[in-house]
Design a protein around this nucleic acid. Structure first.
Lengths: 159, 159
DNA sequence: TATTGTTATACTCTATAACTATA
DNA sequence: TATAGTTATAGAGTATAACAATA
């Protein structure tokens, strides 16, 4: 009986989570389009914003779950628009450190501001208790899919 | 005070939801890679699986939130692998109806089976009450981002 | 030898515009 | 005229393999 409930819940949540994955990506891409950014470009800016000390290309690729060659192209395009800059690493002459420019920093701040405005409109539909519960449950789900190597690490990134 | 709580919740949930959007997509892409499918290809197979009567190219594009020209390429590639087939619509000679083949149907069933196995491992960490609450809250969020045209409809799809 | 980052290559997705066949 | 679908085109992301420079 309990087992049967789990199975029903899995079926229902599977639909919801797949829909959420597809819809939230589309949603994000739409918001970013106003800034002329793609989702991977935003992902890179976001990682750099959270790490003001800069990232090597390898570390940035890892943070964004991309292979290095892909990251080269993404940083090239961000760099042409002066949203990030590359700087040689004095410690290791093979390495390039990537930093957000002030224009890049300003853009990420604006994007996250518009995201918050949007999200506030949805969240005021929920009670404070419901919002807390949503955070708690999503955090459990998120940490599981992010930590379990079977679940999330990309094959090409796995060591 | 209540306002301040909302703002804090927005800040926290913003981080969680962006992470979820990025991670769940990567996750999905990884699972699909085992079947040689991309996310948009899976999205199309999934829509067709839920609509055994077939979709016109326009209707399928709409269901997948793509423009028609993009859908043409996706269906071309699925068709080359015999996962879907195109068939002229007897009612309207301009129109092509797209159907899942039995191979396509079998593939989508397998994919959703592996998704369920994976999800069950996470969901048994939650109590039945927590699972129900997660469904309820995510449904509210999902319906909001899917229904509000400001929120989700792609500019090129908006009539 | 191993690692860092880039380049070259090939494929997919994405959107716009132009086109055809049909309605 | 309007709609259904395709083709042509251009740009972005993705992964693999090969490479030069450095560790």
């Amino acid at each position: 009986m309990l087992e049967s409930n789990l199975n029903n819940d899995v079926l229902a949540l599977q639909q919801i989570l797949v829909q959420l994955s597809l819809a939230s990506r589309k949603n994000l891409a739409l918001d970013l389009g106003d800034f002329g950014l793609t989702v991977p470009q935003y992902s890179a800016l976001r990682a750099l914003h959270r790490n003001p000390d800069g990232f090597s290309m390898s570390a940035l690729a890892n943070a964004c779950q991309q292979v290095k060659a892909t990251m080269t192209g993404i940083v090239d395009r961000l760099s042409e628009r002066n949203l990030v800059r590359r700087q040689p690493d004095p410690q290791d002459r093979r390495s390039q450190l990537v930093y957000l420019t002030s224009a890049g920093d300003q853009m990420i701040v604006e994007i996250e501001h518009t995201q918050r405005e949007r999200l506030a409109q949805v969240l005021h539909l929920l009670s404070p208790g419901e919002r807390k519960e949503m955070m708690r449950l999503l955090t459990i789900y998120l940490e599981t899919i992010q930590r379990d190597p079977e679940f999330v690490i990309h094959p090409s990134i796995k060591k």
